[in-house]
């Protein structure tokens, strides 16, 4: 085991401890709820970061997969009386299937065309959520989504759901970490570095781009599933273009190609609306400014960028 991966193991251990400690310390239902949302957003951000940060392929329509995960499970449980756990696999499966079908042609595109293609895809899925009102409830949304249970234990009571979500976060972190530090991860990063050079050293760039796209869609759908069963109500507004932009912002703020940055980005942008009173009116201005300022001044992300500035000022 190398030193850096030992370091990582320690960090993941520390995070596990922090998650357990927070679960014990926070007894306010509102705080627990916020932590749950941070967890869900972290899963989303980790997935998108693998695609955007590590592989360099932008997606402006990732909320579509988040929505597919949420709606599939919601429709199966509300209309067809599936148990939520039985709905999990079709939800993830559908997202994976859609990602495969959409990904094959879309990932042949690059740069601006890829961005526009994914944006267009996201819009179409959003319109389907809105217009398929017999199943989705249209603009007014779908209510009465059952909560998750294990045996007779309702996971919505107390901190159970918090542990479930953060368990998933830790799992996703470990998996992402392993992926990045492997032959697969190096191939993905080589595509980001230079797609031509990646081909020239023998990386099947199409296949790898598709794999990581599907995996990030899988994670988005998992987050969507958790989200739907956590709040019991979903509407198309949660999966629109702005939702995709929020996900991109979380990746950007935490730093592209940074797993721990994903945690930071998701935490900051989940907490921001809670801290800033009347945030809703300024949400778009704040997100827009963050995206522009971070990309202009700290393209490595907030954490890395601020650390660099600190080191430079110390050395100066």
């Amino acid at each position: 085991m190398t030193q850096s991966s030992l370091h990582e193991t320690v960090r993941i251990g520390l995070l596990t401890g922090a998650v357990a400690a927070a679960g014990i310390l926070f007894d306010n239902a509102y705080h627990i709820q916020v932590l749950v949302f941070i967890g869900i957003n972290t899963i989303l951000t980790l997935g998108l970061n693998l695609l955007m940060g590590y592989t360099g392929q932008i997606s402006l329509g990732h909320a579509a997969f988040y929505g597919i995960g949420a709606y599939t499970s919601a429709i199966l449980t509300v209309h067809f009386q599936f148990s939520p756990w039985a709905a999990l696999f079709p939800s993830l499966g559908l997202a994976v299937l859609v990602a495969l079908i959409v990904g094959i042609p879309t990932l042949k595109l690059s740069g601006y065309y890829l961005a526009m293609g994914t944006l267009g895809f996201g819009m179409i899925v959003f319109i389907v959520f809105r217009e398929l009102d017999f199943w989705t409830g249209g603009s007014s949304g779908l209510a009465g989504i059952p909560s998750l249970k294990i045996g007779s234990v309702d996971l919505m009571s107390g901190r159970n759901f918090y542990y479930l979500v953060w368990g998933a976060v830790l799992g996703t972190l470990v998996v992402s970490r392993r992926l990045i530090e492997s032959r697969v991860g190096r191939a993905l990063r080589s595509i980001h570095g230079s797609e031509h050079a990646a081909m020239a050293i023998g990386v099947n760039t199409q296949a790898y781009k598709l794999q990581v796209f599907v995996f990030s869609a899988f994670l988005a759908a998992l987050a969507g599933f958790l989200y739907a069963h956590c709040i019991g109500f979903i509407s198309p507004g949660s999966f629109d273009f702005m939702a995709s932009v929020r996900m991109v912002t979380m990746v950007v703020i935490g730093g592209m190609a940074s797993i721990w940055g994903a945690l930071l980005g998701a935490s900051l942008l989940t907490l921001l609306p809670e801290w800033l009173h009347a945030f809703a009116d300024y949400e778009m201005i704040v997100y827009g400014l963050i995206l522009m300022l971070v990309m202009i001044f700290l393209p490595q992300g907030l954490l890395r960028g601020l650390l660099d500035i600190y080191e430079r000022s110390r050395n100066a």
Binding site: R183, V184, R186, R189, G193, I201, A257
Partner: peptide
Amino acid sequence: ALFENMNVLENVMVGQHVRTRCGFWGAIAR
């Protein structure tokens, strides 16, 4: 056309891509 987002060692490791086998599931299972 070096991969500037990787260090020197990683550039040569990724060069062995076609002579190594570990795939998606292998990487996760480690």
